[in-house]
């Protein structure tokens, strides 16, 4: 008794085609869409106060470290307390409705609840000061010494152009490793770490090898997973 139509004999070919396409598609979907560059980049949460980095860091030209003080000497980049805000806003724009939560925090002593934008997993050890404090590089035969470090913008992007701060780079292991393997284009003089849009001079670029030799970032597991 014939129980299947003749057309079913095409099934193996169809299945082989479907399996190939589906398999490749699945890998591609996971690879592209489940990656941090797709899932994390562009995350820019709303903050309790619409603080504008574009205004403060860009137009007013404030240094990053005015608020995120001591970031080059500590592991964590701190989020400024209300006092830092009030240092200026006790005098500037004291009536602004947008600043109402700040004044309230100042009066009550309750901390502002800023929403964290960049967060690394707990199993990853990251230290801001190692990246920002700078390593001593000897350039030239005269023994000139420069401190080379990584600038803020390498990881956080052009903060001075962001009205609302968001994630600019995929904060994922592969991305970390790219720089750890070859940091040359991200190294700059320690004086310039907070400069936005810094361009290396030709003279600086001549000494790239010495700069990298001074930094030697780890690429082994325990460099970050301690």
């Amino acid at each position: 008794m014939q129980i299947f139509p003749r057309e079913l004999n095409l099934l193996p070919m169809v299945l082989a085609g479907v399996a190939t396409v589906a398999g490749a598609g699945l890998v591609l979907v996971v690879w592209i869409y489940l990656s941090p560059s797709h899932l994390q980049v562009g995350y820019s949460p709303e903050q309790p106060v619409p603080y504008s980095h574009r205004l403060h860091a860009g137009e007013l030209g404030m240094d990053c470290r005015y608020c995120h003080a001591n970031v080059e000497r500590s592991a964590e980049a701190m989020v400024p307390p209300t006092q830092t805000c009030m240092g200026c806003h006790a005098i500037v724009r004291t009536e602004s409705a947008r600043l109402e939560p700040i004044r309230e925090s100042w009066e009550t002593g309750e901390a502002m609840e800023w929403v964290r934008v960049h967060q690394l997993p707990d199993h990853t050890y990251f230290n801001h000061s190692t990246h920002l404090y700078g390593a001593l590089a000897r350039t030239g035969e005269g023994g000139e010494e420069v401190r080379v470090a990584i600038g803020c913008e390498s990881c956080h992007g052009r903060i001075d152009q962001m009205e609302v701060v968001g994630v600019a780079e995929p904060i994922a292991m592969q991305w970390c490793l790219e720089c750890h393997r070859d940091p040359s284009e991200h190294l700059r003089p320690v004086e310039e770490i907070t400069t936005m849009g810094w361009e290396p001079s030709d003279e600086w670029l001549e000494h790239t090898d010495e700069h990298v030799a001074a930094v030697l970032p780890p690429t082994h597991c325990s460099g970050c997973h301690r």
Binding site: M1, E7, L8, N9, L11
Partner: peptide, 20 residues
């Protein structure tokens, strides 16, 4: 599967009831 040309669900031989 390749050498046997299987799966082949339809085959004239199945028309025969005795073949069961």
């Amino acid at each position: 599967f390749h050498l046997c040309r299987l799966p082949r669900h339809h085959h004239p031989i199945f028309e025969s009831d005795r073949f069961e």
